[in-house]
């Protein structure tokens, strides 16, 4: 952006020096080759198409189609996955994601408000939390919840069994990201809104709940939905907690079936099930972003 702005120079009140008149038809630079700009563009585009087509052909020729079909597209194995892949695996994935999202949202809201607090220790605590949980791989947190916590606190049970553990682990990860998003949303609400609320007699807490947070959520709906998509994929880490057969989600289910059948078709089917959810969600996010853009205008 700044590169484009630079040549225009700062605005002045004094008139700009007169433009140097360049006679029409004078070339700005001596021509190096005989190609015009549009010819060059055509050539460059043609080259890109050529590379692309060549790559596709190379793949199509070199791939062992019979083998790929055998590995990934065994119709009878795929058929055998239904309806479990939907009624159990996809259902569990959705459940894990939503519970993790709910925990993350509540915890993230608390962290965001602590980050904005006038009490120093609250701000520091939230800051440290956010930095730690944004910096750690989600996988480590799952292992920590699944292994370290039971070992460190023998006898303690995270309520809700596997579902509780997943909600907690996913929630801890999500909260760190959501806290920053929510904080940004709250700060994006114009200052006049708080002043108007306070002048009407709202207490700071009530103004936050009734006036500021509802507006902040409109602003952050697209990034929050994006976070939901990320969590949806992260829910595959559940397999590190050790789950029963009925608690398996898409990735674990697909992998288990792939090893029993010695075939990759279940992986492909599981992958398609993820896309079944993430692509429409992504579409919704883009729609919301476009709408938000319009609202700004």
């Amino acid at each position: 952006m700044s590169d484009q702005d630079a040549p225009r120079g700062p605005r002045r009140d004094t008139p700009l020096p007169p433009k140097q008149d360049i006679p029409l038809g004078t070339p700005l630079q001596p021509k190096k080759k005989g190609l015009t700009r549009s010819q060059k563009r055509t050539l460059s585009q043609g080259a890109q198409y050529a590379v692309f087509v060549a790559a596709v052909i190379a793949f199509a020729v070199s791939a062992d189609w019979a083998r790929l079909k055998n590995q990934f597209a065994q119709v009878d194995i795929a058929e055998q996955m239904f309806p479990d892949v939907i009624t159990m695996a996809l259902k569990n994935t959705v459940l894990y994601t939503l519970s993790g999202f709910a925990v993350g949202l509540v915890l993230g809201m608390v962290m965001a408000l602590m980050r904005l607090s006038s009490v120093g220790p609250y701000r520091w605590f939230a800051g440290v939390y956010i930095e730690i949980f944004r910096g750690l791989p989600a996988l480590l947190i799952f292992i920590f919840i699944g292994v370290a916590v039971p070992l460190a606190f023998p006898g303690t049970q995270i309520p809700g069994g596997t579902y509780g553990k997943v909600a907690l682990a996913l929630g801890l990860v999500a909260a760190a990201y959501m806290a920053e998003t929510i904080r940004a949303g709250i700060q994006a609400v114009p200052r006049g809104q708080l002043e108007a609320a306070r002048s009407l007699g709202f207490s700071p807490a009530r103004a936050m709940i009734s006036i500021i947070i509802p507006q902040a959520f409109r602003i952050i709906l697209p990034p929050l939905t994006n976070e939901l998509v990320l969590l949806f994929k992260d829910s595959s880490l559940v397999l590190f907690l050790g789950v029963t057969l009925e608690e398996r989600e898409l990735s674990k289910y697909g992998r288990d079936l792939a090893s029993t059948t010695a075939n990759s078709t279940p992986i492909l089917v599981a992958g398609l099930c993820y896309l079944l959810v993430t692509i429409p969600l992504g579409f919704v996010v883009r729609r919301m972003e476009a709408k938000a853009q319009e609202a700004v205008k």
Partner: peptide, 20 residues
């Protein structure tokens, strides 16, 4: 202060209506 402000109406240059 909240109780006192209920007795004082304020109108701002930028209106500050609640857009939601």
């Amino acid at each position: 202060i909240d109780a006192v402000r209920r007795r004082i109406g304020m109108v701002f240059q930028q209106f500050n209506l609640f857009p939601h």
